[in-house]
Simulated scan of single mutants.
Amino acid sequence: MTVAAEVGTADVRAAAERFGLVGRPVCLHSALSSFGRVAGGADAVVDGLLAAGCTVLVPSASAVFAAPPPAGHTPLPHNSEDDGSIPAAPPAAGYDAAGDTVDRAMGAIPRAVLARQGRSRGAHPLSSFAAVGPLAEPLVAGQSADDVFAPLRELAERGGAVVLAGVGLDALTLLHAAEEDAGLRLMVRWARVGDATGPVAVRHGGCSRGFERLAPAVAHLERAGVVGASRWRTYPAAELLAAAGAVFRRDRLAGVCHDPGCRRCAARIAETGGVIETR
């Protein structure tokens, strides 16, 4: 069995050149473990992209700030409020974009970005994006509780790209933005923000476990290769947003998973009035 060589900053920079990412903002969805041995860890990956002139944008979700809805709230139709993601009690503290709290599931690279001096972070308390590099602040400045995907649209407008490093399309948040562009409603949750005592309503994407089914429709946009042991799939953000949006306009259930127990997808099916086979 061939063992991949150790990856370092220079290898990531070379990969950015190979994939045409030099000087562009890049939204990176990643699993550091997929690289194999990395000299310098998560920081080496970030450094390699920065050395190529990229701005590195990463998801930095923080579900710990989720809160129950306000007293007297009437459940919204087709919002999958019974999916188990809404806590019974509010968190002890509120979200602060200056903080570094992030879900463990986001991985090591988002934590490394958040630890960087001069990084910027969006204002969405549950599904923020963080960025470092020359375009960091412009990328995340428009994000709010009501506009969760603003950083991805800014990425697209600035000629950016998305990179999947060792993860699949089910990690690609931009596909939720494409759903929204196609007229599909976002889910609504609540969160504690800053010193506010009452919950704030926020919008975010639903289930993404079925997104790999879109692979054939966006294959013409994909550039794939290997960095160390990590399989990379890169896409131009604007073109991917348009292509995926077209898929969701043709088939509003194109992204649902086939898990009969998925309440988020059940809500999506109910919203569209669709019927889908389970397997």
Rank of each mutant, 00 (worst) to 15 (best):
M1W: 02
V7W: 05
R13T: 12
A15T: 08
E17K: 04
G20V: 06
G20W: 05
L21K: 02
P25M: 00
L32M: 00
G40V: 08
G41M: 10
A42G: 07
A44S: 12
A44L: 08
V46D: 03
V46P: 08
L57V: 02
V58Q: 07
A61L: 03
A63W: 13
V64Q: 12
P77F: 01
P77N: 12
E81C: 11
I86Y: 01
A98M: 07
T101W: 02
A112G: 09
V113E: 12
A115Q: 02
A115E: 06
R121N: 04
G122E: 00
H124Y: 06
F129P: 10
E137G: 13
P138M: 06
Q143I: 10
A145I: 06
D147Q: 06
V148S: 10
A150L: 11
R153C: 04
A156F: 09
L172A: 00
L184T: 05
M187W: 02
W190G: 05
W190S: 08
A196N: 10
P199I: 04
V202I: 02
E212V: 11
R213I: 10
A215R: 15
P216K: 06
V218W: 00
V218S: 00
A219E: 14
R231E: 15
W232A: 03
R233V: 06
A237L: 05
A242S: 04
A243E: 03
A244H: 00
G245H: 01
F248D: 03
G255R: 05
D259W: 00
R268M: 12
I269Q: 09
